[in-house]
Structures are given as C-alpha cells and as structure tokens.
Write a protein that binds this DNA or RNA. Sequence first.
DNA 1: AAGTGGTCTAGACCACAAC
DNA 2: TTGTGGTCTAGACCACTTG
Lengths: 261, 261
Amino acid sequence: MSQTPPSSNDSAAADGAVQATPAFSPLYQQIKVLILQSLQDGEWKPGEAIPSEIELAARFRVSQGTVRKAIDELAAENLLVRRQGKGTFVATHAEQHVRYRFLRLIPDSGDVDTEGPAQREVLECKRARASADIARTLGLRTGDPVVQVRRILSFGGVPTILEDLWLPGNAFKGLNAGQMAGYHGPTYAMFEVEFGVRMVRAEERIRAVAADAQQAMLLKVEQHTPLLSVERVAYTYNDVPMELRRGLYVTETHHYRNELS
Amino acid sequence: MSQTPPSSNDSAAADGAVQATPAFSPLYQQIKVLILQSLQDGEWKPGEAIPSEIELAARFRVSQGTVRKAIDELAAENLLVRRQGKGTFVATHAEQHVRYRFLRLIPDSGDVDTEGPAQREVLECKRARASADIARTLGLRTGDPVVQVRRILSFGGVPTILEDLWLPGNAFKGLNAGQMAGYHGPTYAMFEVEFGVRMVRAEERIRAVAADAQQAMLLKVEQHTPLLSVERVAYTYNDVPMELRRGLYVTETHHYRNELS
DNA sequence: AAGTGGTCTAGACCACAAC
DNA sequence: TTGTGGTCTAGACCACTTG
C-alpha cells in the first residue's frame, strides 16, 4: 500500500492502453478494493464478522480513519453492516430486517407482517441450454448450461407472482426443486448458503402486459388481465450477472413500491 | 451548540411525553438540522452555493470535519451537490445530469439522448377543491383549494404518458397552463423557479391496469391496452407532501427502469 | 473491564477551479 | 496565487455490547 504519494494507479497494465489521466485513486478507495477482494474470495462469509477496524488498519498499514471511510462506503452499498459495540458484518439476505429486500411488491394495506412470507410452488426446475439472449445477459455463450426454474408465489393462498429464473449452470450445479421449495426464507439467502453466491444489486425493467391463456390459468385470473412484467438481472460482487428473472405480478391487491430520491 | 457533552436532546419538550432513552444526537446531526433549516427558509436557493465548510464551521462553532460529515449526508440525500474546487451547491432539478431524475420511463433502446425531452400538451389546468383522499395524501382538509393539471407527454411525437397532477392551492397560486407547457426543462425545475418549491423525494405505487375508453383515446392506443399506473406522492423538505401525481405509461417501446441495492 | 464501532477535533497536505 | 472541497493522520473521548 503505497502512501506517499498514494499510488496514482496501482492496477497492473492489463492491456496496452495508456491512460491520459493517471486516474488518481484515494487510499481509502484502494482499501475498499482490497476488502471487496476478500469478500469475493470468501475470506469472510455472509453473516460473519470481518476484522475490527484497528486490525484492518494494521493489516493494510493505514490509519483507522482510512479503513473507516472504506467500510462506510461498503456499508452504504449494503455489502457490509455495522453494529455498534459488536463489529462489522458481511451483509446477508437472511437477516430479518432486510429480508425480501429485492421484493418490491407489497399489499395495498402496507402491512407486510400480517400477510407473512409467500408460499412457494415450484412448477419446474431443470437443466437447459442458454438461448442467445439469455446467454448475453448472463455473460455466457449460447448453448452454455443453465438452470431454469418456474414457480408461483402466493400470498394468503392467492397466486400473485409467476416467475421464471435462469441461473448459470456452473455456479448452480445441483440446484433442484426441493431446495427451491424447501428453504425457509428468501431464495437469495438459500443461494448464499448452498452455492456461496451473494446477490449484491439488481436492475429491473417494468412493463404492463396482458395475461395470455397459460399465464392466466396459472395465476387464476381472467385472460388479458393486466399484469406487471418485471425483468430482473441480479449481480454478485464485481457486477457479475448471476441471475435473470422474469416475473408477472398480479396487482389487484398488491402494488410495486418504489422510493425516488 | 452545546459541546461537552453534546446535548443529549436539544429539542424542547413539545408535549408531556417522557423519553426513556434521552435519544443521544451527535453534533453533526444537529448541524445537519441547522443547515436543513436554512435550506427550508430559503437562505440559500436552488443552484446557489452555500458558505464554505470553514465559514459554516466558524458559524456553528464546530470543527470543519463535523460540518463535513453533515454536508456529506445531505449530499448523499441529494439535497446538496459538492463540486471540488468550487464549493457546495443547493441541488436543483434544472441541472443537466440530474434532469428528469424522477422520470424512470426510458426507451427500450436505453438511448435517452436520441429521443430528447418529452413534448408536453396540457389538456387542463384548473383550480378545484380537494376530495377526501387527495386532501389526505396532501395533508390538507377536504374542500381546500388545489390546482389540478392534466397533460400528455409524448416522445418523438408518440403520446406515452397521461398524467394528472394535484398541487396545494396555496403554494401554487397562479399556476396556469402556459407555465406548465412553456417552461423548457423538468416541471420540477419550473416549480423551483416560479413557486420556490423544491421536490426532494417521492414515493411511487405501481400497478398494471387496462386503458378505459377515454384514456385509450387520449393515448391513441386500443381500449384495454395494458398500461403502467404510477401513483406518486412528492415531498419537499421535512417530508411535507406537495404533489400527488397519477400517471398512465404506455410501455410498448418504453419501460420503467429501477435499480435495487 | 475490555473491545467494538461512533464522534469530534486539529492539522497537514493534495486536487481542482478561478483569477 | 488563492480558495474550495478531498484525503489522511493521530489522538481523545463516547456509546454500546459482552463477559
């Protein structure tokens, strides 16, 4: 960790490109990258505590304040969770207060708790080969192995979400319907435990569509009922796409909630 | 600004309630409130620079680092914008890179720039009285004066958004169709300039609905076409609601983009 | 009591923008 | 050259958790 000056750019020349601007990178950003690296490498697993700020400061040969700023940013990105008096922990989808952080559909009453968690029914869970567009969004090649899942989520017995998931076959070897249905808690928490894959962020594209005959049957609504089409790409560390998900949401008694700021 | 100790709780007893925990509030939070107060009071207007960190530190009798932390949080909330070497500025909807920050509908191509800004057609702009539910969400009483606007936004000549807006009559006295249609740039930027109202954050509830006869006609689509229903409540400083907006989005060539993290 | 994160300070220096 | 925000440090002390 060079300190004086804070190395203009530590990254080894990956290719022959020459940067006109040396891209000054603050020390705390370099520390952030190092911590991120340890997270990726699984040195600290979801739910575990990472070393204390003082330990990390010693390890990286910087002041506690610099480590603090790096951790602050990682906490702001929901990769770490700070708990005063206890330590800093690797974020996980299994925590109570962030459960279903990525599920934005809530009952119109707003009272998520009375409803409880969704009931899951797995219709299909099979190995397949990636089509061209699925391969593209998952960063694979056409024909590469993928796991495909189709399921229905119900709230209070009412089928509300029909979802198709595509996952890279290599990372999710051995995923089966039993796991998808049996795990208690968010699917993403199961992915962490069973496959060591932690979803960090996601992008969604939302449209309004009309239910076709099959979709209407599965969701127990009239054909042509307007549905929310939610296409999600979820990413692990380092912006690596690890899931494509296409969902159809019934919005009779629920709505998709979003906060703009 | 009490410093030793950092006043356990400065707020005067608003009611007779006794707090079991004194609710320790860090100095920088108190500074944050003071800055927020100045923003609300219009001491610094959108687009203007606020005093330098050193000046604010002197004014509040704290160190620069404490002011910095307060400003950091306000910048993270998009209330202030820092520009190295120049100063810290009050955020505004008129800035180029945050224009239409609250409009999440983008063309499927993803290329927002080729499309350019929306064409606005104001169908209606009238004074009215708040119905019960509109009064409730705007924090008014039923029958209080409101301004109601109906308009259509088109992209490349294609009508895409049909919107109804309700605004508190007192704050938006004198708003007329000419202003709504004539202003170049985001409507929220016009609100800042003409009425001194800055929208800080908003909540949206999204559903899929079918176009009725009138909506279909106005948006030039088939009746029963699935549309995205977006109900937004926008807030100024201090979580005061200042706008209710009900929009219907055509999602044939556009989609609502959302980022989860 | 010991260890963790959280706050606050003061000072030095760097990067950027404007004059 | 000056003034702004941005980084980095070192140390003191506070608040929270656990033993």
